[in-house]
Design a protein around this nucleic acid. Structure first.
Lengths: 237, 237
DNA sequence: GTCTATATGTAGATAGAC
DNA sequence: GTCTATCTACATATAGAC
Protein backbone atom coordinates (compact mmCIF):
# COMPACT_ATOMS: atom_id res chain seq x y z
CA UNK A 1 0.00 0.00 0.00
CA UNK A 2 0.85 3.67 -0.15
CA UNK A 3 3.13 3.96 -3.16
CA UNK A 4 4.36 7.46 -3.73
CA UNK A 5 2.51 9.45 -6.30
CA UNK A 6 4.42 12.45 -7.48
CA UNK A 7 1.28 14.35 -8.41
CA UNK A 8 0.42 15.11 -4.83
CA UNK A 9 3.69 14.77 -3.02
CA UNK A 10 5.16 18.22 -3.71
CA UNK A 11 1.97 20.13 -3.12
CA UNK A 12 2.41 22.89 -0.59
CA UNK A 13 0.05 25.74 -0.16
CA UNK A 14 2.03 28.50 1.40
CA UNK A 15 3.21 31.10 -1.01
CA UNK A 16 6.99 31.22 -1.27
CA UNK A 17 8.67 34.55 -0.87
CA UNK A 18 10.61 36.08 -3.69
CA UNK A 19 13.77 34.39 -2.45
CA UNK A 20 12.09 30.97 -2.69
CA UNK A 21 11.82 30.36 1.05
CA UNK A 22 8.66 30.66 3.05
CA UNK A 23 8.22 33.61 5.32
CA UNK A 24 8.65 32.55 8.91
CA UNK A 25 5.02 33.13 9.86
CA UNK A 26 3.82 31.34 6.78
CA UNK A 27 5.85 28.26 7.63
CA UNK A 28 4.42 28.23 11.15
CA UNK A 29 0.94 28.59 9.77
CA UNK A 30 1.49 25.54 7.57
CA UNK A 31 2.79 23.58 10.54
CA UNK A 32 -0.34 24.42 12.49
CA UNK A 33 -2.72 23.57 9.67
CA UNK A 34 -0.87 20.35 8.92
CA UNK A 35 -1.00 19.25 12.54
CA UNK A 36 -4.69 20.10 12.77
CA UNK A 37 -5.38 18.25 9.53
CA UNK A 38 -3.75 15.07 10.80
CA UNK A 39 -5.45 15.16 14.19
CA UNK A 40 -8.92 16.07 12.92
CA UNK A 41 -8.65 13.27 10.35
CA UNK A 42 -7.74 10.79 13.05
CA UNK A 43 -10.04 11.82 15.90
CA UNK A 44 -12.74 14.07 14.52
CA UNK A 45 -13.57 17.64 15.40
CA UNK A 46 -14.70 17.12 18.99
CA UNK A 47 -12.00 14.56 19.62
CA UNK A 48 -9.22 17.10 19.23
CA UNK A 49 -8.42 20.06 21.46
CA UNK A 50 -6.52 23.13 20.44
CA UNK A 51 -3.93 22.04 22.98
CA UNK A 52 -3.53 18.76 21.11
CA UNK A 53 -2.93 20.70 17.92
CA UNK A 54 -0.40 22.99 19.55
CA UNK A 55 1.47 19.98 20.93
CA UNK A 56 1.43 18.18 17.58
CA UNK A 57 2.63 21.27 15.75
CA UNK A 58 5.21 22.02 18.46
CA UNK A 59 4.07 25.59 18.93
CA UNK A 60 2.53 27.32 21.89
CA UNK A 61 -1.18 27.35 22.48
CA UNK A 62 -1.92 30.86 21.37
CA UNK A 63 -0.02 30.48 18.12
CA UNK A 64 -2.75 28.10 17.01
CA UNK A 65 -5.34 30.75 17.73
CA UNK A 66 -3.30 33.40 15.98
CA UNK A 67 -2.98 31.44 12.73
CA UNK A 68 -6.13 29.39 12.84
CA UNK A 69 -8.67 31.65 14.48
CA UNK A 70 -11.44 29.85 16.33
CA UNK A 71 -11.62 26.09 16.29
CA UNK A 72 -14.47 26.20 13.76
CA UNK A 73 -12.53 28.53 11.50
CA UNK A 74 -9.48 26.34 11.70
CA UNK A 75 -11.48 23.31 10.64
CA UNK A 76 -13.02 25.09 7.68
CA UNK A 77 -9.69 26.55 6.63
CA UNK A 78 -8.25 23.06 6.37
CA UNK A 79 -10.98 22.11 3.93
CA UNK A 80 -10.63 25.21 1.89
CA UNK A 81 -6.89 24.83 1.59
CA UNK A 82 -6.87 21.69 -0.57
CA UNK A 83 -10.33 21.66 -2.11
CA UNK A 84 -9.33 23.51 -5.21
CA UNK A 85 -6.49 21.13 -6.04
CA UNK A 86 -8.75 18.09 -5.79
CA UNK A 87 -11.50 19.75 -7.79
CA UNK A 88 -9.07 20.73 -10.49
CA UNK A 89 -7.71 17.19 -10.74
CA UNK A 90 -11.23 15.89 -11.21
CA UNK A 91 -12.22 18.52 -13.73
CA UNK A 92 -9.10 17.93 -15.76
CA UNK A 93 -9.60 14.18 -15.73
CA UNK A 94 -13.12 14.62 -17.03
CA UNK A 95 -12.13 17.21 -19.63
CA UNK A 96 -9.29 15.04 -20.84
CA UNK A 97 -11.60 12.07 -21.28
CA UNK A 98 -14.17 14.16 -23.08
CA UNK A 99 -11.54 15.47 -25.44
CA UNK A 100 -10.20 12.00 -26.10
CA UNK A 101 -13.39 9.95 -26.36
CA UNK A 102 -16.13 12.46 -27.18
CA UNK A 103 -19.51 10.78 -27.56
CA UNK A 104 -17.94 7.38 -26.84
CA UNK A 105 -17.62 8.37 -23.17
CA UNK A 106 -18.91 5.66 -20.83
CA UNK A 107 -20.22 5.65 -17.28
CA UNK A 108 -17.10 3.77 -16.31
CA UNK A 109 -14.92 6.55 -17.69
CA UNK A 110 -16.83 9.13 -15.69
CA UNK A 111 -16.56 7.07 -12.52
CA UNK A 112 -12.83 6.74 -13.02
CA UNK A 113 -12.42 10.47 -13.54
CA UNK A 114 -14.19 11.03 -10.24
CA UNK A 115 -12.64 8.27 -8.18
CA UNK A 116 -9.02 8.16 -9.29
CA UNK A 117 -7.99 11.69 -8.30
CA UNK A 118 -9.28 11.07 -4.80
CA UNK A 119 -7.70 7.65 -4.64
CA UNK A 120 -4.34 8.98 -5.80
CA UNK A 121 -4.59 11.66 -3.16
CA UNK A 122 -5.37 9.18 -0.39
CA UNK A 123 -2.54 6.87 -1.34
CA UNK A 124 -0.05 9.44 -2.55
CA UNK A 125 2.43 8.65 0.19
CA UNK A 126 2.08 12.20 1.49
CA UNK A 127 0.66 12.01 4.98
CA UNK A 128 -1.09 15.35 4.70
CA UNK A 129 -2.98 14.39 1.59
CA UNK A 130 -3.80 11.05 3.16
CA UNK A 131 -5.11 12.87 6.22
CA UNK A 132 -7.18 15.18 4.03
CA UNK A 133 -8.71 12.18 2.27
CA UNK A 134 -9.67 10.68 5.62
CA UNK A 135 -11.09 13.97 6.76
CA UNK A 136 -13.34 14.17 3.71
CA UNK A 137 -14.55 10.63 4.36
CA UNK A 138 -15.28 11.62 7.92
CA UNK A 139 -17.40 14.68 7.29
CA UNK A 140 -19.17 13.50 4.13
CA UNK A 141 -21.86 11.76 6.19
CA UNK A 142 -21.82 14.26 9.01
CA UNK A 143 -24.96 16.34 9.07
CA UNK A 144 -23.35 18.99 11.19
CA UNK A 145 -20.37 19.65 8.94
CA UNK A 146 -21.39 18.69 5.47
CA UNK A 147 -23.65 21.72 4.98
CA UNK A 148 -20.69 23.95 5.83
CA UNK A 149 -18.27 22.42 3.34
CA UNK A 150 -20.57 21.30 0.55
CA UNK A 151 -19.75 24.43 -1.40
CA UNK A 152 -16.34 22.88 -2.03
CA UNK A 153 -17.69 19.61 -3.40
CA UNK A 154 -21.17 20.08 -4.79
CA UNK A 155 -20.33 22.07 -7.93
CA UNK A 156 -17.99 19.41 -9.22
CA UNK A 157 -20.50 16.70 -8.36
CA UNK A 158 -23.03 18.52 -10.52
CA UNK A 159 -20.61 18.43 -13.45
CA UNK A 160 -20.15 14.71 -13.11
CA UNK A 161 -23.87 14.10 -12.84
CA UNK A 162 -24.38 16.14 -15.98
CA UNK A 163 -21.86 13.89 -17.71
CA UNK A 164 -23.79 10.84 -16.50
CA UNK A 165 -26.97 12.28 -17.93
CA UNK A 166 -25.27 12.94 -21.26
CA UNK A 167 -24.30 9.27 -21.43
CA UNK A 168 -27.85 8.13 -20.81
CA UNK A 169 -30.38 10.96 -21.13
CA UNK A 170 -33.32 8.71 -20.24
CA UNK A 171 -32.00 7.57 -16.88
CA UNK A 172 -34.49 8.33 -14.09
CA UNK A 173 -33.08 11.30 -12.20
CA UNK A 174 -33.88 10.05 -8.73
CA UNK A 175 -32.14 6.74 -9.33
CA UNK A 176 -29.20 8.54 -10.83
CA UNK A 177 -28.92 10.74 -7.76
CA UNK A 178 -29.06 7.78 -5.45
CA UNK A 179 -26.55 5.73 -7.44
CA UNK A 180 -24.19 8.68 -7.39
CA UNK A 181 -24.46 9.26 -3.65
CA UNK A 182 -24.01 5.56 -2.96
CA UNK A 183 -20.97 5.46 -5.25
CA UNK A 184 -19.38 8.41 -3.53
CA UNK A 185 -19.93 6.82 -0.15
CA UNK A 186 -18.46 3.57 -1.40
CA UNK A 187 -15.40 5.43 -2.63
CA UNK A 188 -14.92 7.17 0.69
CA UNK A 189 -15.44 3.97 2.62
CA UNK A 190 -12.62 2.21 0.83
CA UNK A 191 -10.20 4.77 2.18
CA UNK A 192 -11.56 4.72 5.70
CA UNK A 193 -12.18 0.98 5.90
CA UNK A 194 -9.52 -0.76 3.87
CA UNK A 195 -8.42 -2.23 7.18
CA UNK A 196 -11.78 -3.97 7.41
CA UNK A 197 -11.55 -5.24 3.87
CA UNK A 198 -8.11 -6.63 4.59
CA UNK A 199 -9.26 -8.26 7.83
CA UNK A 200 -12.27 -9.80 6.18
CA UNK A 201 -10.21 -11.06 3.25
CA UNK A 202 -7.89 -12.86 5.62
CA UNK A 203 -10.85 -14.29 7.52
CA UNK A 204 -11.96 -15.82 4.22
CA UNK A 205 -8.54 -17.29 3.61
CA UNK A 206 -7.31 -14.80 1.03
CA UNK A 207 -4.32 -12.54 1.37
CA UNK A 208 -4.99 -8.94 2.29
CA UNK A 209 -4.87 -6.87 -0.89
CA UNK A 210 -2.22 -4.17 -0.75
CA UNK A 211 -2.24 -2.63 -4.20
CA UNK A 212 -4.15 0.64 -4.59
CA UNK A 213 -4.78 -0.29 -8.23
CA UNK A 214 -6.61 -3.39 -7.05
CA UNK A 215 -8.87 -1.34 -4.77
CA UNK A 216 -9.54 1.11 -7.59
CA UNK A 217 -10.38 -1.62 -10.05
CA UNK A 218 -12.76 -3.47 -7.73
CA UNK A 219 -14.40 -0.29 -6.51
CA UNK A 220 -14.96 1.10 -9.98
CA UNK A 221 -16.19 -2.27 -11.16
CA UNK A 222 -18.64 -2.36 -8.28
CA UNK A 223 -19.96 1.12 -8.93
CA UNK A 224 -20.22 0.54 -12.66
CA UNK A 225 -22.29 -2.61 -12.16
CA UNK A 226 -24.24 -0.89 -9.43
CA UNK A 227 -25.16 2.07 -11.61
CA UNK A 228 -26.26 -0.10 -14.45
CA UNK A 229 -28.48 -2.26 -12.28
CA UNK A 230 -29.86 0.60 -10.20
CA UNK A 231 -30.93 2.59 -13.24
CA UNK A 232 -32.95 -0.24 -14.66
CA UNK A 233 -36.56 0.37 -13.80
CA UNK A 234 -37.79 -2.45 -11.60
CA UNK A 235 -39.40 -2.60 -8.24
CA UNK A 236 -38.67 -5.38 -5.86
CA UNK A 237 -39.90 -5.76 -2.32
CA UNK B 1 -41.07 8.33 4.62
CA UNK B 2 -41.15 6.71 8.01
CA UNK B 3 -44.19 4.48 7.88
CA UNK B 4 -44.75 2.60 11.07
CA UNK B 5 -43.52 -0.93 11.12
CA UNK B 6 -45.05 -2.97 13.87
CA UNK B 7 -42.10 -5.30 14.06
CA UNK B 8 -39.90 -2.79 15.83
CA UNK B 9 -42.39 -0.40 17.35
CA UNK B 10 -43.25 -2.32 20.53
CA UNK B 11 -39.71 -3.37 21.29
CA UNK B 12 -38.71 -2.44 24.82
CA UNK B 13 -35.82 -3.92 26.65
CA UNK B 14 -36.54 -3.49 30.30
CA UNK B 15 -37.92 -6.54 31.98
CA UNK B 16 -41.44 -5.98 33.29
CA UNK B 17 -42.11 -6.88 36.87
CA UNK B 18 -44.57 -9.61 37.73
CA UNK B 19 -47.37 -7.05 37.86
CA UNK B 20 -46.62 -5.96 34.31
CA UNK B 21 -45.21 -2.55 35.18
CA UNK B 22 -41.53 -1.68 35.12
CA UNK B 23 -39.71 -1.28 38.36
CA UNK B 24 -39.12 2.41 39.01
CA UNK B 25 -35.37 2.16 38.66
CA UNK B 26 -35.68 0.14 35.50
CA UNK B 27 -37.90 2.74 33.88
CA UNK B 28 -35.40 5.46 34.75
CA UNK B 29 -32.60 3.40 33.33
CA UNK B 30 -34.49 3.08 30.05
CA UNK B 31 -35.10 6.81 29.99
CA UNK B 32 -31.39 7.43 30.39
CA UNK B 33 -30.33 4.93 27.74
CA UNK B 34 -32.96 6.21 25.32
CA UNK B 35 -31.84 9.79 25.76
CA UNK B 36 -28.19 8.82 25.32
CA UNK B 37 -29.04 6.81 22.24
CA UNK B 38 -30.78 9.73 20.58
CA UNK B 39 -28.05 12.22 21.42
CA UNK B 40 -25.11 9.99 20.51
CA UNK B 41 -26.80 9.18 17.20
CA UNK B 42 -27.24 12.85 16.47
CA UNK B 43 -23.95 14.32 17.68
CA UNK B 44 -21.47 11.49 18.14
CA UNK B 45 -19.66 10.38 21.27
CA UNK B 46 -17.51 13.44 21.84
CA UNK B 47 -20.30 15.76 20.80
CA UNK B 48 -22.47 14.82 23.78
CA UNK B 49 -21.81 15.49 27.45
CA UNK B 50 -23.24 13.53 30.32
CA UNK B 51 -24.97 16.73 31.30
CA UNK B 52 -26.65 16.83 27.90
CA UNK B 53 -27.91 13.32 28.48
CA UNK B 54 -29.22 14.14 31.94
CA UNK B 55 -31.08 17.14 30.54
CA UNK B 56 -32.56 15.14 27.67
CA UNK B 57 -33.64 12.34 30.00
CA UNK B 58 -34.94 14.83 32.56
CA UNK B 59 -32.99 13.29 35.42
CA UNK B 60 -30.20 14.67 37.52
CA UNK B 61 -26.59 14.38 36.51
CA UNK B 62 -25.58 11.62 38.86
CA UNK B 63 -28.51 9.42 37.88
CA UNK B 64 -26.87 9.04 34.49
CA UNK B 65 -23.69 7.84 36.17
CA UNK B 66 -25.62 5.54 38.43
CA UNK B 67 -27.41 3.73 35.60
CA UNK B 68 -24.91 4.13 32.82
CA UNK B 69 -21.55 3.94 34.55
CA UNK B 70 -18.77 5.78 32.78
CA UNK B 71 -19.40 7.51 29.49
CA UNK B 72 -17.63 4.70 27.62
CA UNK B 73 -19.70 2.06 29.37
CA UNK B 74 -22.87 3.93 28.61
CA UNK B 75 -22.03 4.06 24.92
CA UNK B 76 -21.26 0.36 24.74
CA UNK B 77 -24.36 -0.55 26.72
CA UNK B 78 -26.49 1.21 24.14
CA UNK B 79 -25.03 -0.98 21.43
CA UNK B 80 -25.40 -4.13 23.38
CA UNK B 81 -29.00 -3.43 24.22
CA UNK B 82 -30.40 -3.79 20.70
CA UNK B 83 -27.76 -5.80 18.87
CA UNK B 84 -29.34 -9.15 19.54
CA UNK B 85 -32.71 -8.11 18.16
CA UNK B 86 -31.19 -6.90 14.89
CA UNK B 87 -29.00 -9.98 14.58
CA UNK B 88 -31.94 -12.26 15.17
CA UNK B 89 -34.01 -10.50 12.51
CA UNK B 90 -31.20 -10.99 10.02
CA UNK B 91 -30.60 -14.62 10.92
CA UNK B 92 -34.27 -15.41 10.67
CA UNK B 93 -34.57 -13.69 7.32
CA UNK B 94 -31.68 -15.75 5.97
CA UNK B 95 -32.93 -19.00 7.48
CA UNK B 96 -36.39 -18.40 6.11
CA UNK B 97 -35.02 -17.83 2.62
CA UNK B 98 -32.85 -20.91 2.81
CA UNK B 99 -35.79 -23.02 3.87
CA UNK B 100 -37.96 -21.62 1.11
CA UNK B 101 -35.52 -21.53 -1.81
CA UNK B 102 -32.78 -23.99 -0.93
CA UNK B 103 -30.15 -24.21 -3.64
CA UNK B 104 -32.02 -21.65 -5.73
CA UNK B 105 -30.90 -18.93 -3.33
CA UNK B 106 -29.48 -15.90 -5.15
CA UNK B 107 -27.10 -13.13 -4.19
CA UNK B 108 -30.02 -10.75 -4.35
CA UNK B 109 -31.90 -12.84 -1.78
CA UNK B 110 -28.95 -12.73 0.56
CA UNK B 111 -28.56 -8.99 0.16
CA UNK B 112 -32.24 -8.50 0.93
CA UNK B 113 -32.00 -10.64 4.05
CA UNK B 114 -29.15 -8.47 5.24
CA UNK B 115 -30.46 -5.06 4.23
CA UNK B 116 -34.18 -5.22 4.92
CA UNK B 117 -34.06 -5.85 8.68
CA UNK B 118 -31.81 -2.82 9.09
CA UNK B 119 -33.92 -0.73 6.77
CA UNK B 120 -37.13 -1.66 8.60
CA UNK B 121 -35.44 -0.76 11.84
CA UNK B 122 -34.30 2.62 10.58
CA UNK B 123 -37.72 3.51 9.20
CA UNK B 124 -39.87 1.76 11.75
CA UNK B 125 -41.38 4.99 13.01
CA UNK B 126 -39.89 4.36 16.43
CA UNK B 127 -37.44 7.12 17.16
CA UNK B 128 -35.23 4.93 19.32
CA UNK B 129 -34.75 2.34 16.62
CA UNK B 130 -34.16 5.10 14.11
CA UNK B 131 -31.54 6.57 16.43
CA UNK B 132 -29.91 3.18 16.82
CA UNK B 133 -29.72 2.80 13.06
CA UNK B 134 -28.02 6.18 12.78
CA UNK B 135 -25.64 5.28 15.55
CA UNK B 136 -24.58 2.11 13.74
CA UNK B 137 -23.99 4.11 10.57
CA UNK B 138 -21.90 6.53 12.58
CA UNK B 139 -19.52 4.09 14.23
CA UNK B 140 -19.21 1.60 11.36
CA UNK B 141 -16.41 3.63 9.79
CA UNK B 142 -14.96 4.86 13.07
CA UNK B 143 -11.63 3.25 13.80
CA UNK B 144 -11.83 4.13 17.45
CA UNK B 145 -15.21 2.51 18.14
CA UNK B 146 -15.64 -0.20 15.58
CA UNK B 147 -13.11 -2.55 17.21
CA UNK B 148 -15.08 -2.28 20.45
CA UNK B 149 -18.46 -3.16 18.98
CA UNK B 150 -17.55 -5.48 16.13
CA UNK B 151 -18.29 -8.47 18.33
CA UNK B 152 -21.95 -7.55 17.92
CA UNK B 153 -21.85 -7.44 14.13
CA UNK B 154 -19.03 -9.58 12.78
CA UNK B 155 -20.46 -13.04 13.53
CA UNK B 156 -23.60 -12.39 11.53
CA UNK B 157 -21.55 -10.87 8.72
CA UNK B 158 -19.58 -14.10 8.55
CA UNK B 159 -22.81 -16.06 8.12
CA UNK B 160 -23.88 -13.89 5.24
CA UNK B 161 -20.49 -14.14 3.56
CA UNK B 162 -20.66 -17.90 3.88
CA UNK B 163 -24.01 -17.77 2.13
CA UNK B 164 -22.48 -15.69 -0.65
CA UNK B 165 -19.74 -18.25 -1.06
CA UNK B 166 -22.28 -21.06 -1.24
CA UNK B 167 -23.98 -19.24 -4.12
CA UNK B 168 -20.74 -18.89 -6.03
CA UNK B 169 -17.92 -21.04 -4.61
CA UNK B 170 -15.40 -19.81 -7.17
CA UNK B 171 -15.70 -16.12 -6.33
CA UNK B 172 -12.32 -14.61 -5.39
CA UNK B 173 -12.38 -14.13 -1.63
CA UNK B 174 -10.73 -10.75 -1.59
CA UNK B 175 -13.20 -9.32 -4.09
CA UNK B 176 -16.05 -10.86 -2.15
CA UNK B 177 -14.82 -9.24 1.04
CA UNK B 178 -14.53 -5.87 -0.62
CA UNK B 179 -17.93 -6.08 -2.32
CA UNK B 180 -19.49 -6.96 1.01
CA UNK B 181 -17.86 -4.10 2.91
CA UNK B 182 -18.80 -1.66 0.18
CA UNK B 183 -22.38 -2.94 0.18
CA UNK B 184 -22.68 -2.56 3.93
CA UNK B 185 -21.36 0.98 3.73
CA UNK B 186 -23.79 1.76 0.95
CA UNK B 187 -26.64 0.46 3.07
CA UNK B 188 -25.59 2.55 6.03
CA UNK B 189 -25.13 5.63 3.90
CA UNK B 190 -28.70 5.52 2.65
CA UNK B 191 -29.92 5.96 6.20
CA UNK B 192 -27.48 8.69 7.07
CA UNK B 193 -27.66 10.54 3.77
CA UNK B 194 -31.13 10.17 2.38
CA UNK B 195 -31.37 13.91 2.80
CA UNK B 196 -28.55 14.29 0.30
CA UNK B 197 -30.18 11.91 -2.14
CA UNK B 198 -33.39 13.88 -1.87
CA UNK B 199 -31.60 17.20 -2.35
CA UNK B 200 -29.70 15.92 -5.34
CA UNK B 201 -32.82 14.43 -6.91
CA UNK B 202 -34.53 17.80 -6.71
CA UNK B 203 -31.47 19.50 -8.16
CA UNK B 204 -31.84 17.20 -11.16
CA UNK B 205 -35.49 18.08 -11.52
CA UNK B 206 -36.97 14.93 -10.00
CA UNK B 207 -39.16 14.73 -6.95
CA UNK B 208 -37.50 13.66 -3.73
CA UNK B 209 -38.25 9.99 -3.18
CA UNK B 210 -40.10 9.36 0.08
CA UNK B 211 -40.92 5.67 0.02
CA UNK B 212 -38.61 3.38 2.00
CA UNK B 213 -39.44 0.60 -0.45
CA UNK B 214 -38.01 2.72 -3.23
CA UNK B 215 -34.74 3.22 -1.36
CA UNK B 216 -34.57 -0.49 -0.60
CA UNK B 217 -35.17 -1.46 -4.19
CA UNK B 218 -32.60 0.90 -5.66
CA UNK B 219 -30.03 0.09 -3.01
CA UNK B 220 -30.39 -3.65 -3.39
CA UNK B 221 -30.34 -3.29 -7.15
CA UNK B 222 -27.15 -1.29 -6.91
CA UNK B 223 -25.44 -3.80 -4.64
CA UNK B 224 -26.56 -6.74 -6.71
CA UNK B 225 -25.14 -5.24 -9.88
CA UNK B 226 -22.07 -4.12 -7.99
CA UNK B 227 -21.36 -7.58 -6.63
CA UNK B 228 -21.74 -9.18 -9.99
CA UNK B 229 -19.41 -6.76 -11.71
CA UNK B 230 -16.85 -6.64 -8.90
CA UNK B 231 -16.49 -10.40 -8.77
CA UNK B 232 -15.68 -10.68 -12.44
CA UNK B 233 -11.95 -10.95 -12.79
CA UNK B 234 -10.67 -7.96 -14.71
CA UNK B 235 -8.10 -5.33 -14.02
CA UNK B 236 -8.53 -1.78 -15.20
CA UNK B 237 -6.20 1.09 -14.49
C1' DG C 1 4.88 36.67 15.31
C1' DT C 2 5.33 34.34 19.26
C1' DC C 3 5.37 33.90 23.96
C1' DT C 4 3.37 33.52 29.13
C1' DA C 5 -0.39 34.07 31.93
C1' DT C 6 -4.93 33.89 32.89
C1' DA C 7 -10.10 34.60 32.47
C1' DT C 8 -14.09 31.94 32.13
C1' DG C 9 -16.62 28.03 31.17
C1' DT C 10 -17.54 23.13 31.06
C1' DA C 11 -16.02 18.38 31.19
C1' DG C 12 -16.43 13.56 33.85
C1' DA C 13 -16.85 11.56 38.13
C1' DT C 14 -18.32 10.80 42.88
C1' DA C 15 -19.26 11.65 48.08
C1' DG C 16 -22.76 11.86 51.04
C1' DA C 17 -27.58 13.53 52.45
C1' DC C 18 -32.17 11.88 52.09
C1' DG D 1 -32.66 5.28 43.72
C1' DT D 2 -32.23 9.84 43.40
C1' DC D 3 -30.80 14.16 44.82
C1' DT D 4 -27.35 18.37 45.73
C1' DA D 5 -22.86 19.80 46.05
C1' DT D 6 -18.35 19.74 44.78
C1' DC D 7 -13.60 17.97 43.31
C1' DT D 8 -10.34 18.11 39.71
C1' DA D 9 -9.12 18.46 35.16
C1' DC D 10 -9.33 20.40 30.90
C1' DA D 11 -11.66 23.21 27.40
C1' DT D 12 -11.57 27.76 24.29
C1' DA D 13 -10.16 32.15 23.98
C1' DT D 14 -7.54 36.34 24.59
C1' DA D 15 -4.73 40.18 26.93
C1' DG D 16 -0.48 41.94 27.11
C1' DA D 17 4.82 41.43 27.50
C1' DC D 18 8.60 40.91 24.43
Amino acid sequence: MTPTNARYAPEKHAKPKADGRLARGEATREKVLDAAERLFAEHGFEGVSIRDIAREAVVSLSVVGFHGGSKDDLFLTIFQRRAETLNRARSEALAELRARKGAALTRRDILEAYVLPYSRMAWSGDRQWAAYAKLIARIATDERWYPRVREFFDPIAQDFLAAMIAVDPDAPRDRLAMAFVVSVTAMLSVVSSNMRIATLSRALGAEAPTDPAWYNAVLIGFCEGGFENALRVSDGT
